[in-house]
Structures are given as C-alpha cells and as structure tokens.
C-alpha cells in the first residue's frame, strides 16, 4: 500500500515569513492591528492560564523541594531531594503505583469495546442517532451518580450482578464480594508488591476496572472511532470488495490501518488518563480501601496533602507522577509515530 499525501488543511496558509535571507519582514500597520487584536482576544485565556495553571504548577515544583506542612506554619525549609529519597523508600507509593497500573489493565478492553460499538453505529441502521445518544449517556452523567449506581449493582447480597451469577451458576456459587474484597486476579498482597495465593480472586480492583470499561466504552473514544470510520475512503473498501476480501479481511487490512492515528491518540490519552485516574472512585466508593487496595497515585496525593497536610511531599509525588506520565507519553509517541508512519 502506498502512502497517500494528506490534503492540505484550508485553515493553514503558507505566507512567506521572510523578505530575504535572514531578514524578517516588518509587519504592516494592518498586521500590527491584527496582532494587537489577537493578543486582546487571547489575553483573558492566557491570563487565566498563567494565574490558575502555570503559576500554581511552578509553585508546586518549588514546594516539592521543601518540607512544607500546613500544620507547621512558618517552619518550611528547603530540603533539596529529601522528598524524592523519602518517596523512593515509601512502600505505600509503590503499592499505590501498582494499584494505578492494575486499574489501567482494562484500557485495551475498553478501547476494543469502543471500536466494536463504533463499528456497529457506523452501519446504516434506523435510529442510529438514538443509539449513539444512549451509548454516550455515561459521558454526560454525573460521575458520582454513576458510581452510586454501580455500588448498588456490586452489592454482594442483593446486587443484580451477583443475582445474575447465582442465577447462572446456582445459589451455592461463591459470588465475588466486589468492593468489600481485597482479592484480585493477580493475587497481589494489599500492603506490599508480593503475590500470595490467598488474595487470588475478584475484588474491589476488578469492580472499579469493570466500571471504568463501561464508562470508557461508550464515551469519547467511541465517538472518535465513529468519526474516524467516516473518514475511511469508500473507494478503498470498494476496491477490497472487488478483490474478493471478506468483512474480516476488509477490517483487518483496510479499516484498521486507516484507524491507526485515532487508535494512537486514544491509547495515549487513555494512558495519561489512567495514570491520573482512580480518585473519584476511591473518594466516593471505597475511601481507598479495603486495606488500600483501591488507592491510586492521585488519591494518595490527595490524602498526603489534605489529610496529612504534608504539602511538600504531596508536591513531590505529583511531580514524580507527572514525570512518569510524560515518560510514558514520550515513549509511546516515539513508537507510535514510527508505527503509524509505516
């Protein structure tokens, strides 16, 4: 397959930037007015970004090198890398990092479900707009309301999920205890990075994982895939049909490669979101428990800063989390760019 040059966006114009080698053209009076107008329009946004995002971010970077504690006002000192050393030796940090990664294991399934739904919605069927709206509902429903709904679904005794399991496998079937259980599919111990057979099973982590898959499957990822499917050139599909390709071959060899940029984007965004995630679930459903099994890095940062009031250490954890996310994104960007270019 040969690369097709992308059509140039009409929004991008290529005006000459220089009047000669190394000499920047002096903007005309009209252009100066345009620049001033642009700055005026952008100023509120830029000002808001600077005051509410950039400055706090830089402030937190400074705080990461201090022992700032809200309960000890006036006793903040520069401590260099001691927060980082503390973090490396902090067993909780690594356990909660593992929890965060564990909860991201549902990402491939969620993306696959989104793609599946998008393929279904891409077909010419009556009421497709209604289906799209219904499937997108979780995305514009309040997160807390959804979590309370899932809490009821996960009720081990009277919840519909366990009722269904009992209906399928009999009343004596050992149903999962969901949000109340420390069990997990990898058998991870709650307090340290260690595997033990007695923790093997289905528990709170899987409950949150399931909830996450359900939320993501019908959300923005699905919409992105629907849009991307609409951009797959019909002539390529037609050509494949004429060549005798069946539905699976057409999907595997024509549609899927055309969706590569979208897949790349949703995976990057999913990884970033996953590493930052888990806060709402922990705050609303489990308080990070049982025994810390649903505490993720973002919830840990919250507890350190606003329950223990160790703002300096919480800032350090935040920056380490940022570096981890940045590292993941960069590696994936490099690898992904190379693969999507092939």
């Amino acid at each position: 397959m040969t690369d097709t040059p992308l059509p140039e966006s009409p929004a991008v114009t290529r005006e000459p930037q220089t009047a000669g080698a190394g000499i920047v053209a002096k903007p005309s009076g009209r252009k100066r007015t345009d620049v001033r107008a642009a700055i005026m329009f952008l100023a509120p946004n830029l000002l808001g970004f600077a005051v509410f995002t950039l400055l706090p971010v830089l402030f937190s970077l400074g705080a990461a090198f201090t022992d700032w504690d809200l309960t000890r006002p006036g006793k903040t000192h520069f401590t260099g890398l001691s927060n980082l050393r503390h973090l490396l030796a902090d067993g909780n940090f690594w356990v909660y990092f593992a929890n965060t990664i564990y909860l991201m294991l549902g990402l491939p399934i969620a993306i696959a479900c989104s793609l599946g739904l998008a393929l279904l919605l891409h077909r010419e069927v009556r009421g497709v707009v209604v289906y799209r709206t219904v499937l997108y509902l979780p995305s514009f429903t309040a997160g807390v309301a959804l979590m309370l709904l899932w809490q009821a679904l996960f009720n081990p005794d009277i919840g519909p999920i366990n009722a269904m399991l009992r209906g399928l496998f009999g009343q004596s079937f050992p149903v999962p205890q969901w949000l109340g259980s420390m069990s997990n599919l990898l058998g991870l111990e709650p307090e340290r990075l260690h595997v033990a057979g007695k923790y093997f099973g289905i528990g709170a982590r899987e409950a949150i994982l399931l909830m996450g898959i359900w939320t993501v499957a019908g959300g923005n990822t699905m919409l992105l895939y629907v849009a991307a499917l609409g951009n797959v050139p019909a002539e390529l599909i037609e050509a494949a049909k004429l060549d005798g390709a069946g539905p699976w071959q057409r999907f595997r060899n024509v549609t899927w490669p055309q969706l590569a940029p979208t897949t790349f984007f949703v995976v990057v965004m999913g990884v970033i979101g996953g590493l930052q995630g888990g806060f709402e679930q922990a705050r609303v459903l489990t308080a990070g428990g049982p025994a810390g099994t649903t505490t993720t890095l973002s919830y840990y940062i919250y507890t350190v800063a606003f329950e223990r009031f160790e703002v300096g250490y919480a800032s350090a954890v935040s920056w380490v989390m940022f570096l981890i996310i940045f590292g993941f994104a960069m590696v994936y960007w490099k690898v992904g760019n190379r693969e999507t270019a092939i």
Binding site: M182, P190, P290, G292
Partner: peptide, 18 residues
C-alpha cells in the same frame, strides 16, 4: 489522620480474616 489510616488498613485485614 495518619494513625487513623494505618489502623483502618490493619483492621480491614483483621476483619476480613486476612
């Protein structure tokens, strides 16, 4: 709050027979 969280984690383990 540190004490509360440590105790809660350990009691979670005891009351779940872990």
């Amino acid at each position: 709050t540190v004490v509360e969280r440590v105790v809660k984690t350990q009691l979670d383990m005891v009351t779940r027979d872990a």
